[in-house]
Amino acid sequence: MSAPVLEAIAVTKDYRLGKQPIPVLRGIDLAVQPGEKLALLGTSGAGKSTLLHVLGLLDAPTTGEIRYDGERVDQRSVAERARLRHRQIGFVFQFYHLIPELTALQNVMLSGMMATSVLQYWGVRKAAKAAAIAMLEKVGLGHRLHHRPAELSGGERQRVAIARALVAEPRVILADEPTGNLDSQTANGVVELMFSIQRERGLAFVLVTHDENLARRCDRIVRLRDGAVVT
């Protein structure tokens, strides 16, 4: 078996309420293999989002390590972690998290501007725009390029968010209850879309959910309860 693309080793995470540390993650060991679909299943408050944030380097573990391709990355500088996040990870959130001032196309293009300087970007701006349009067409929104998030339905917004996560060509998608805010029919469409792209690109996929049926469609299920993995 090949090396895991993403690895959590004995990760704990405490939040502090006053002087009292509140343990949210209590020693998580998790390895995500390239191209695998992993479901993180757990009730609300189990620590699924917190784990996803730690895996995506948005938050630092209190103890333990995060490894990308076998290398420890959680202690790198802020700028370096931002660069890794851009290169390796694509986030999809429950509440879409699009920037309301930007059109669908601009939201997707924004993701391509994260790691290039103004001058570098100027040289590739046409290609970047074409790539963003192609990605939006791929998620079925070729006719909604210039709409603002407020002018799109929930399903359409999540498709824009998926396009945005994919356009920077990450190796891992971290999706935090991506269908939690959608009706079942729309949710189904979004899931089908994500899985088809995942297959096509051979991405690793971590899907946070509390929906058993959805979890069963993944390759592997990891159950989380009170911040620990249940076997």
Partner: peptide
């Protein structure tokens, strides 16, 4: 503030 979090999740550095 939320946009700032979004930018961070997309890989924007604090400086940028």
């Amino acid at each position: 503030t939320r946009d700032i979090g979004i930018l961070a999740s997309l890989g924007g550095s604090p400086r940028s």
